[in-house]
Structures are given as C-alpha cells and as structure tokens.
Design a protein around this nucleic acid. Structure first.
Length: 275
DNA sequence: CTTGCGACCTGTTGGC
DNA sequence: TGCCAACAGGTCGCAA
C-alpha cells in the first residue's frame, strides 16, 4: 500500500521520535515475516540504540548500535505505529518494541506481506539494495530527464505503467502515483515506453518529482488502510485526479474517468486527454 | 535479458 | 440475508 510519500512520511515521523532511543524489549507475536528466528531477532535488538532512520525506495532502514540494520518493508498493509505504553496490541500486531521513554512501536500487518529483516549494516548494499536492481530516487539528484529517457528506451517494449511499477527506471512509484503522474502528463498507461516522445518523457519526469514531493509535504495518501506512525491519514487523497475516481468527470477535459485492468492492476485514466 | 502472470495473505465489497 | 468472486497501496519467482 504505502508508496514513497507514505513511507517517507513514516520515516520522518520516526526520525524525530524514536532515533536515539534504546530498545528495552521485543515481543514477537508472529515470526513468519522475519529473516531470522524469533529468538535471534530479539537477541540482536534488545539493548540496542536506534541510531538512524533511512529509506531506499520503499524500504525503511533503521541503523542500530551493535552494527545491525533493521530493514522494514510495509508492502500493502504494513504499519509502524508509535503508541502509548498502555495500548493493547490487536490480532494484526506482529511485533511489539518497547522503547526507552515509555513509548511503544507496533508493527501491524493485516495481509502479512510486509517484513522485518535484520542485516549487518556492512552487508546492506551487497545483500539487500544491490540485488533489488533499483532505479534512482525520484527526489534525489540521480533522477535526471536524460537518463530517465535512456532507461525507458531500454525497457521500451513494456507498457509505461507496469514499467513505472517495476522500480527499474525510478523507485517509489506505486499504483496510485503511477496513475496520477501519467494523467498529469497526458500519457495513456498502456503506451509502450519506447513510443514516448522526448517532451512526454520530460513531462513525466517532472510530474513524478512534483507529485511525489507535494504528497510527501502533506503526509501521503490514505485510500483505505494507510495510516502514518501516529495513526493519522494522509492529505493527498483530496488531491487525487484519477485514482479511485472512475465515473467522475476529468478535471481537465470533462470526460468520464475510466478504470481498466493493466498488468493485473486496477488502472485509472482519462480516455480523452491521455494519448 | 525481457515480459507477463500466478502466488503470497486477510479483509471488504458488490452482485446475484 | 447469504454466498462467493473479485479486488486491495507490492514484490518475487518462474516460465516463455
């Protein structure tokens, strides 16, 4: 569920609330999404201090004293929730972290796609980031219109929307923001990436940066179950132009927004002003 | 190497 | 009202 703006919102909230804290205890209630046994997981975390919070693509990276990094992927329904120490876990709370200073961090995940992985910080690049084959960060200096154009050409036989979702040409864009960025740039989601004109590539590059930056600023999008680290909804759901708006008039041309299935994903677009 | 599709889970919704 | 298929914000592994 969470795409870059939602993951980045959670990261920023935890940056100012849990970084610097010590992990007092860890309660694993469901161990099926850990990469080590529950016993080892607890042993490597208890007593450690949280030194940093980072993000690469949709991965959250918490650097710990002792040389480990906790890698978190929220996938569709995962949540990291900072709650009061008297809050009861629910049936979807898989891990409870008690921190110094009376706060508790819950890892909840209804669908159990999300995971908590522990790696030696020295191994992150070699074992986690590198093998993923990630493209550049959309809000970083490595995302440039000319290299984006070259990357789109390289995978040019794929339709543009599934290619955006693949994280190969740029990371952090998921099902909501792919539909929103393609609408803003007037590009049909099923266009072969290789057929995009130079000005369309520049426009898409610009839309990705502007929409993601704006969404981060207002706390991401809550279409359904997404909540930030304080359990609050995002503000971008009010800005959506096509996602979840099938049957409503396009704000640019008045044509009714259509929903189709593309690459197995629900896809929303304006049949008139997206070419 | 690229592309496409089913699998992984649980919960909700809409149609009959 | 009840049942059941389809769908949900993401990858991942495997086949062609």
């Amino acid at each position: 569920m969470p795409e870059l703006p939602e993951v980045e919102t959670v990261r920023r909230q935890l940056e100012r609330t849990i970084v610097g804290r010590r992990i007092g205890s860890v309660d694993v209630r469901f161990s099926g999404r850990l990469n080590v046994g529950a016993g080892e997981f607890v042993k490597r975390l208890v007593g450690r201090r949280i030194l940093s919070s980072g993000r690469r693509a949709k991965l959250l990276l918490f650097g710990l004293s002792g040389g480990d990094t906790l890698v978190v992927h929220l996938k569709m329904t995962g949540k990291l929730l900072l709650v009061d120490s008297d809050q009861e876990p629910n049936r979807h709370t898989h891990v409870v972290f008690r921190l110094s200073g009376y706060n508790v961090l819950f890892f909840d995940d209804i669908r159990k796609f999300g995971y908590l992985h522990l790696f030696r910080t020295d191994d992150l690049e070699r074992l986690v980031i590198g093998p993923a084959g990630y493209g550049p960060e959309p809000l970083g200096p490595g995302f440039r219109a000319d290299s984006f154009a070259a990357d789109l050409k390289r995978f040019g036989r794929s339709a543009i929307k599934p290619l955006l979702l693949s994280q190969k040409c740029v990371v952090g864009v998921g099902n909501i923001y792919s539909d929103e960025t393609l609408w803003r740039s007037g590009i049909r989601p099923d266009r072969s990436a290789g057929t995009l004109e130079a000005d369309e590539v520049r426009s898409l590059h610009d839309s990705i940066r502007k929409i993601l930056r704006r969404s981060v600023r207002i706390g991401g999008t809550s279409v359904d179950s997404y909540r930030d680290a304080f359990g609050r909804r995002g503000g971008y759901e009010r800005k959506l132009e096509v996602y979840g708006r099938e049957g409503h008039p396009c704000s640019r041309c008045g044509e009714l927004i259509r929903k189709v299935r593309l690459g197995g994903r629900g896809t929303h677009y304006c049949p008139k002003c997206q070419k």
